[in-house]
Structure formats: C-alpha cells, structure tokens
Simulated scan of single mutants.
Amino acid sequence: MTRAAFIIGPSRSGTSVLALALGRHPRIEATEELHFYNLLQPAAVADGHGKEWLWARLCAIQDEGRFFEIKSGSLAELPNPASEDLPGAETPLLRGFFDRLARNAGAATVVEQTPMNLYYRDEIRRDFPDALFFLMRRDPRAIIASQKMRWKVGAHGQREIPARDLARVRHSGHPILQLLLLRKTLQEVRLAMGEPDVVPIAYEVLVTDPDRKLAELAERLGHEYDPAMRDVSDGGSSHTPEGGRTGFDTQRLEGWRKSLTATEIWLTERLYRDELVMPATGARPRVGELLGLLFSLPRALAMALYYSAGGYGNLVDAARRRFL
C-alpha cells in the first residue's frame, strides 16, 4: 500500500520547496497542489459530478499542469477515464490516485503539498488513516513579505499565470489583510502541532540544516536519505529572480527585511510577537503609512473577494474554515 504524506501550513511558508526536496528521492513521488479537499471534491458534490469527473481533473492537474484552467472554470470538458483506471468502491478516490502515481513512478510514498489541507486534516484522516502531516512553520514577517511580493513570482519565473489570478494575489497581498488571515491560520497551526500524526518543521531549520532535517523526514517515511534531496531549484521565490540555482539559500531568511516597510514589520511584530523565529527588530510605525494601509484595506478586501470567486469549491465553507 502506498504511504501518504501531506505537507500543510500557512501559504508561503515553504511547503513547495519541501515538496520539491522530498520529490527528488527516488522512492518518493511529490504531487502538484491538487486542491482536492478544498476545491475539487466540494465542486463535485455541489454540481453532482461523479468520481470520473474528479479523476479526470486530478490527472489534468498532475499530468498537464492545468490547475488554473480548472480553478477558473475555463477548462473544456475532459474525457472520462476508462473504468479500469478508477479505484474500486471500497478505496477512497484520492488514495487510488496516489496508488496510480506510485505505480507509474516506481515510488513507495506519495507526498501532496496543498497548504490549505491544514484545514482539512479530519477529512484526510478518514481517507488516509495512516497518513503523516508535515507542518511547515515560518517567521510571520517572512510569510507576510512573501504574500506581499507573491505577484512577482510570475515575473521572476516567466510563468503563464492568468491575469485574474495575478490580480487576486496582488490585492490579497495587502499586508493588513494577510495579517488578519494569518490569525486563524496560526491558530490551526498551534492545534495541529499537538496531534500525534503531525511533524512540525521550521522553514528556517530546513534552510540552515537541510541534510539533517531532510534525513529525519525521509526516515519518518521509511526511506534512507538521498543527498539529491537538498538540490532543489530556486523556483517560486517572491524575493529574488529565479536564476536556475540549486540548493537552499540562507540569504532568503533575511529577505523580509527588504520587502517590508518599518510599519509593516511593526504591525507583524505587535500582533505575532510569540510566533517570531528571529529577534524582534524594534521597528517603529510611520503614522501616514499606517493610515494609508488602513484606508486601502476595504478596497483590497473587496477586490480579493471578487477575484477569488470561483476559486473554491464551496466559498462559504472555505471562509468559515479560514476566518471562524
């Protein structure tokens, strides 16, 4: 039976780079962000679609990189998979999909990397009773800075990110909006840390000591460490252009100092002092800038909601999990 692990945590906390590292092990297959529990499955339930519909979209995301088309609803109808490709009625659909990935890759373990699965741990446990959760943690200032600069990922990587999604991340990256969203996320992180199947991972430790940390995680999955795991690319950085480099770059740990203003640093340190990994800076706010952030917040929130419409299978349920 395929071993399953789910990388969870705040968005921009290092979930993608951990998936890249684990996926470089010859016996571990890392998936794309499948968004099964927060998008695909709720959409299937709401619209009355069956497992053929779900399977086809899982394949389109994993094999063809068509997540943005699926998320926006612009994807043309996909052909139904052959019945022999689908798991039996007794096997949860995503588990069957993981088995398919493992067979095709010659892997024993499949690792999924959707950060939003932080809010769907109970649903995952019903489908994967023996799963592990790798919980990423990161200094809140680095998370806020990465969210603020996230729109630059497309420019740095020259990726084809749809204009609607680019607009969404630019508006949702408003620092105060992200600080508000982070409150519930960190509450969920604290809850998850006390659960026996959750393995907490500090991004800062992963970057400064990747061999030791990746060896620990490989062992938890039943594998020996492979040094190739540390040779990840620099793709996906919101602070620096992607230059084709490999390896963990400790200079990125300080990137938030350049990306955030003194006011934004002050706000983050005031609200999340207990979550800081690096020492507080003692930054002071600028009154004019603080007022500007507050004044611009309502528009940023409205535009973020507008551009997020359709991005969740069940927007009401997603909002409840993220805010309440």
Rank of each mutant, 00 (worst) to 15 (best):
S11W: 11
R138F: 01
D249I: 05
P196I: 05
P115Y: 08
S233K: 11
G236R: 02
L166A: 05
A5C: 11
R286C: 15
V189L: 09
Y120L: 04
G65H: 05
A309C: 00
V189W: 00
H156F: 14
R12P: 11
F134H: 13
V232G: 09
H174C: 03
L315I: 02
L86I: 02
C59W: 01
V207G: 10
R137G: 05
P26C: 15
K51H: 09
K51W: 02
G157V: 06
S238Q: 04
L86H: 07
T246R: 08
R286Y: 04
V189A: 01
V189K: 00
Y312N: 14
S146A: 15
A318N: 01
E52H: 12
G48V: 08
G96N: 07
Y225S: 12
D122M: 08
T240C: 08
L118D: 05
S308Q: 06
G292W: 12
E29K: 13
G244K: 09
T2C: 07
Q113V: 14
E52I: 06
F98T: 07
Q178W: 03
T268C: 15
E242V: 09
Q62K: 06
R257E: 04
Y119R: 06
A89I: 07
T263A: 08
F134K: 13
F133E: 00
E242P: 02
T250R: 11
T240P: 01
H35Q: 03
T91Q: 10
F248I: 08
K51Q: 11
P196G: 11
F97Y: 10
A283D: 01
T261R: 07
R126D: 03
M136D: 00
A262S: 13
F97T: 04
Y203A: 09
G282W: 10
V207Q: 01
R3Y: 06
L39R: 04
V205T: 11
N117H: 15
L324M: 08
E219T: 10
K152S: 14
L39E: 03
D209I: 11
G244H: 03
A167P: 00
L40W: 01
R24L: 15
R12I: 13
I144F: 10
A215N: 06
R150T: 08
R190K: 09
H174F: 06
Q158M: 05
A60Y: 00
L301N: 10
Q178L: 02
L267R: 12
F67L: 15
T15E: 13
R168E: 14
P115Q: 05
D165F: 15
E52K: 15
T15K: 10
F6N: 12
V153M: 01
D130Q: 08
A44R: 09
H25L: 08
E224H: 07
A215W: 03
L324P: 00
E289C: 12
K152F: 13
Q113W: 05
L297C: 10
T185Q: 12
M229F: 13
R284P: 09
A56L: 07
